[in-house]
Amino acid sequence: MTDSAPDSLIPYDEIVQEALRAVVGRVIGEVEKDGLPGEHHFYITFKTRAPGVEIPDHLIAKFPDEMTIVIQNRYWDLRVNGDRFEVGLSFNQISSMLHIPFAAITSFVDPAVDFALQFHVEEVEDDMDGHEPAENDADADSSASEIEIVDDGSNVVTVDFGKKK
């Protein structure tokens, strides 16, 4: 008897990832209609060079692999369009429209309720080491906690919501 599970002919991982991305789409769609309720806000990390991502060149230059945006205080024109969403954010007083396919998202976090999802995204280019969160202007008014997502290779995400330093 072996310890390893047999290879599945059913792509369970892909099916689960697709279903969880639909959760993100539904949540953002509800925020599109009704706005952010209560203390809810989102940290959305995505691959900047994934197929279908449309962001300004200055953001790709600063975040060539991955960036994290905050949907909280200052955003506009939030729209869900099928398999993607778009949102207006300001980065260093420069207004920008971002178009992000759900397939490009690597993590979605709502710190108000300790909810987090992490996704696998196929690499498009050479993997860059790490990334720093984008500081869109929503961060300026935010009392958001610092987030640390620990990826230990499993499908479980550990999120540490510590006090901002």
Rank of each mutant, 00 (worst) to 15 (best):
I149Q: 07
S143L: 14
S142V: 02
Q118M: 15
E123R: 14
D127C: 04
E148T: 15
A116F: 00
D114C: 07
P133K: 12
E125W: 06
S145N: 14
E123G: 05
D129T: 12
A116V: 14
M128L: 13
D152Y: 07
H131C: 06
E122P: 01
L117M: 14
V121H: 02
A144F: 04
P133Q: 10
D141K: 09
E125K: 11
E148V: 14
F115H: 06
H131F: 15
P133E: 05
S143D: 15
E148Y: 07
D127Y: 09
L117E: 08
A138P: 01
D141H: 08
D126H: 08
F119Q: 01
E132I: 14
G153P: 00
H120L: 10
D129F: 07
Q118V: 12
A116C: 10
D152Q: 15
V121N: 03
D114Y: 12
H120S: 08
D141P: 00
E123C: 01
D126W: 04
G153F: 01
A140Q: 13
V121S: 03
V121T: 13
V150I: 15
E135I: 14
M128N: 06
P133N: 10
E123F: 03
D137N: 06
E122L: 07
D114S: 13
E146K: 12
D126K: 09
Q118H: 11
V150N: 09
D139N: 14
I149A: 02
S143H: 11
E122M: 06
D137W: 03
L117F: 06
M128V: 14
N136A: 03
V121W: 03
S143F: 14
E122A: 12
G130D: 08
I147G: 00
D152C: 02
E122N: 11
S143M: 11
P133C: 06
A138E: 05
F119P: 00
E125V: 06
D129M: 08
E135D: 11
S142K: 00
V150L: 15
V121M: 05
A140G: 05
S145C: 06
S142M: 04
A134K: 02
H131L: 07
D152G: 09
D141Y: 10
E125M: 08
E123P: 04
V150A: 08
S142A: 13
G130Q: 01
D152H: 08
L117H: 01
D127W: 10
S145L: 12
D141V: 07
D126V: 04
D152N: 11
D114L: 08
E125H: 09
A134R: 02
N136R: 04
D129E: 13
D139M: 14
E122G: 04
F119C: 00
D127M: 10
D141R: 11
A134Y: 00
D151Q: 07
A140M: 13
S143E: 15
F119H: 03
A138V: 01
N136L: 03
E132L: 10
D127H: 08
A116L: 01
E122R: 13
D127Q: 07
G130R: 01
N136P: 05
H131T: 08
D129I: 14
D152S: 12
E123W: 05
